[in-house]
Design a binder for these strands. Structure first.
Lengths: 86, 86
DNA sequence: CCCGCTATGTATAACGA
DNA sequence: TTCGTTATACATAGCGG
């Protein structure tokens, strides 16, 4: 991408992987914010690092996004009635 | 961004907003895929357009990501025990 | 680990068809 | 409206603190 092009595959070097994760995660969150702002969209983004840490972004609130996702026509029927009352 | 810089605020022109939404959404999904691949992260991304359409991406499956999010220590206790059995 | 720098690779706004 | 092109803005890999 920058000083040198990289392959889109798991980064072997742990340090480099962590640094890349940190930087791209930040950029990705920014993009999510821009997309929701520019186009009046509701966005929910969840990221779990390889070490199990959770990072999330939601234009409204994650619970609201998840609930909306579960209530979406395409998903009703693909799951039980759980979360409907959240 | 390109032929001209834009402000990060809701795009008034409907046509331009739809085009931008379509393009940025695609790019955003690609970024999500790259981040999960490069850094071995689990990612869930949900996007609801202003018209209510749902677009989603998950490195594994959205239900799995949502479940993991709900089971995350930081979220247990912030909600009821719903979704635990999905 | 986080921050800044900067050369370069990418994403994309505005057009044209 | 949808698609391809292209000039630019933006994101970021590799380093140094």
């Amino acid at each position: 991408m920058t000083r040198r092009k990289i392959q889109i595959k798991n980064i072997d070097n742990t340090t480099a992987r962590l640094v890349t994760f940190s930087k791209r995660r930040k950029g990705h969150f920014k993009k999510a914010f821009e997309l929701s702002t520019l186009c009046d969209a509701e966005i929910g983004l969840m990221v779990f690092s390889a070490t199990g840490k959770l990072f999330e972004y939601a234009s409204s609130s994650m619970q609201q996004v998840i609930e909306r996702h579960n209530l979406h026509p395409d998903n009703l029927g693909k799951m039980d009635q759980l979360s409907l009352e959240l």
